[in-house]
Simulated assay, not measured.
Amino acid sequence: MGETHNESNRLEIHNSHLIKGAFTKVATNCDIKVTFKYKNRNEALFLEKIYKTNEK
């Protein structure tokens, strides 16, 4: 889960391990299941935090 303006680019970077210290650094087959559009970055990050806090 994360925020971006370009979903396909973010996925490619994520799966190629170009993000140092990424939580899913061993994953090579991540896929996009759903996307949401928000009014601004602050709203997206706020809702991402709520989701990750309640994730089980």
Rank of each mutant, 00 (worst) to 15 (best):
R41E: 04
T53I: 11
K49E: 07
V26H: 11
M1N: 07
L18F: 06
E3D: 08
G21L: 07
A27D: 15
N6D: 12
I19C: 02
S8G: 01
K49F: 06
K39M: 00
F23S: 06
L47V: 08
Y38W: 05
T35C: 03
I13F: 01
G21Q: 13
N42H: 05
C30N: 13
A22M: 06
Y38A: 02
E7H: 04
R10N: 05
N29V: 05
L18P: 00
I19V: 13
H14C: 07
T53S: 09
N9W: 08
M1T: 08
V26Q: 10
N29F: 07
A27H: 13
A22L: 03
K25Q: 09
T53D: 14
E12F: 06
K39I: 00
E12I: 03
L18W: 10
G21D: 15
G2Q: 14
T28K: 08
N15H: 10
K20E: 11
K39V: 00
D31T: 11
S16A: 02
T53W: 12
K37A: 01
I32L: 02
N15Q: 10
K52P: 01
A27Y: 13
L11W: 08
V26W: 09
E3G: 07
T24F: 09
T28A: 01
V34F: 13
I50C: 03
K33M: 11
I13S: 00
A44P: 03
T53P: 01
A27L: 11
T28N: 03
I13N: 01
K49D: 05
E12W: 09
A27C: 13
K52C: 12
K33G: 02
N15R: 14
K39R: 00
E48L: 15
N9A: 11
H5W: 04
R10K: 11
Y51K: 15
T28H: 03
I32Y: 06
